[in-house]
């Protein structure tokens, strides 16, 4: 039996205008493990991820039905404070998006939103999360430089540190290595692996090998439907559904 996690989807339907992108998804993501969502492009992976922190709210024509339950609370309930939901999750996007400020300020952005101004509190915090993201040694002497001067691989790890600094329970990754070179990708992957004991990680990827390297659990999404979900060893090795098998053997992509 899969342990019930903090993140659950109940009868989730998402529409863009008249187009239904996610069809009746039910999913329980186990906590303190790494779940990978795979599927061909356009199958709704990113949309699914954006449901978790309600970034879908920013897409005009998007409409959500059903429940996304985080910590026993449906985050789509009216009256839910969306900024509080988002603070529970760190997000890594496809292209790292640093904020237009210094390296230090990027990491301190989240804590400062909570009203934290005290340098003696922020300094060790910034160091801690930069270390956790494996960036500290590279940037410790230039924390006040603009974040846009970092290489793209460093920027992605900065985004990781920034996301961790809001002390989330969940880390969401939307193909977080797709813009990175192989070396930086491995670096980010290694850090994700080291984080999964303390965080629930949900990763979207279209790279099967990456899924094999990282996943504890795998969800296969096809044309907006959740086809299969289970431990990586089962889904990736001996899938039950013919469509999953076809995807894994490369017949559909």
């Amino acid at each position: 039996m899969v342990e019930r996690g903090r993140l659950s989807l109940r009868n989730l339907n998402v529409y863009y205008g008249r187009n239904q992108v996610l069809k009746n998804i039910n999913l329980d993501i186990p906590k303190n493990s790494l779940t990978v969502i795979i599927g061909p492009s356009g199958c709704g992976k990113t949309t699914l991820l954006k449901c978790f922190n309600r970034l879908l709210d920013e897409i005009e024509e998007a409409r959500v039905e059903g429940q996304v339950i985080v910590d026993d609370q449906n985050i789509y309930d009216p009256g839910v404070e969306v900024t509080l939901i988002r603070k529970k999750m760190g997000l890594l996007s496809q292209r790292p998006q640093v904020l237009p400020m210094s390296i230090y300020d990027n990491v301190a952005f989240g804590p400062r939103l909570l009203g934290q101004k005290d340098k003696s509190y922020l300094n060790p915090l910034v160091e801690k999360y930069l270390r956790l993201a494996g960036l500290w040694e590279e940037v410790k002497n230039r924390l006040n430089e603009p974040a846009n001067r970092l290489s793209i691989g460093q920027q992605q790890r900065l985004c990781l540190a920034r996301g961790l600094a809001v002390e989330p329970e969940i880390i969401l990754g939307d193909e977080p290595t797709s813009a990175l070179d192989p070396q930086s990708s491995r670096n980010v992957e290694a850090h994700l692996l080291s984080l999964k004991t303390n965080y629930t990680i949900v990763l979207v990827t279209h790279i099967l090998r990456q899924a094999k390297r990282l996943a504890d659990y795998v969800a296969f999404l096809y044309l907006g439907e959740l086809i299969e979900f289970g431990p990586a060893s089962e889904v990736l090795v001996s899938p039950r559904d013919p469509r999953t098998r076809a995807y894994i053997t490369g017949e559909i992509s």
Binding site: N53, E58, L91, S93, Q97, G110, L113, V166
Partner: peptide
């Protein structure tokens, strides 16, 4: 201002107002 920058700020829990003042205006 790219919408990705706004999304980055939102995903860290910034409200619209905070995003406007701390991120968009800087950019």
């Amino acid at each position: 201002v790219p919408s990705e920058i706004k999304e980055a700020a939102y995903s860290l829990g910034a409200s619209r107002w905070q995003t406007a003042i701390r991120v968009i205006l800087r950019q």
